[in-house]
Design a protein around this nucleic acid. Structure first.
Lengths: 110, 110
DNA sequence: AATATTAATCGTTAAAGTACGATTGAAAGA
DNA sequence: TCTTTCAATCGTACTTTAACGATTAATATT
């Protein structure tokens, strides 16, 4: 795009977060971490149809957006969900939901 | 990715929808259409920091995901929001919200 | 009929995304 | 110490996304 600055901050933040969810592997990682408190890279690789290096890349993407957090433990990495960030994601999505759906006409006119 | 089939349908649909929201222009288009019942391509171009051809492309992306709908009227195209589809989008996001956040630990333990 | 308007499409370029296997470096276990 | 294990990173390939200006085709306007 020509000029990022002409988009509003809210739309930019939202689009960034949506990008995190724009790949099934990343959604699955979030889902897994939501029910396991922590997982190693290896464990995640075992649950995903992707190679170790590819999973590692997806984990890095989620790390950069701070949706997950990493702790080193011996030779392994423990990944945990950043609940606050995830909550913010859903809050922002919900805000868009309300901002738009409030304008929905009562009758479907098409 | 090697094998799409090993991802679940829900994650695939969700990731597709998230892709629609992964660009600020598309979010803005949805927002605009939510408050205007219909808009021409030209009107949308005027509100976005992008060229006519680029906006047209984003409109096409949204059309393909059936989030918007197009009617021809003379030399212009009228775009309207597909409210049902948008509602489904938010429903699915909300479902992920609930499926994950229900597992949030009471105490922040990190 | 000639011109203007609108919007899709074409052609192109550049950047980002997705994937893999191979390599590396660190820590653990033998 | 030697080997194994784990996960990040490197190198590479290919695809997709995003952007623009130019062109085209259709409809309106003059």
């Amino acid at each position: 795009m020509k000029d990022n600055n002409t988009f509003h901050a809210l739309e930019l933040e939202l689009s960034q977060m949506a990008k995190c969810l724009s790949h099934p592997a990343r959604i699955q990682i979030i889902t897994i971490l939501s029910k396991h408190k922590d997982r190693t890279c290896k464990e995640l690789v075992a649950e995903l149809p992707l190679s170790q290096s590819t999973v590692s890349k997806h984990l890095n993407d989620l790390l950069e957006e701070k949706l997950i957090c990493r702790k080193f433990s011996g030779t392994q990495s423990l990944y945990t969900l950043e609940w606050n960030k995830l909550e913010r994601l859903f809050t922002i999505f919900d805000r868009l939901n309300k901002r738009t759906m409030i304008n929905r006409p009562k009758r479907n006119c098409c």
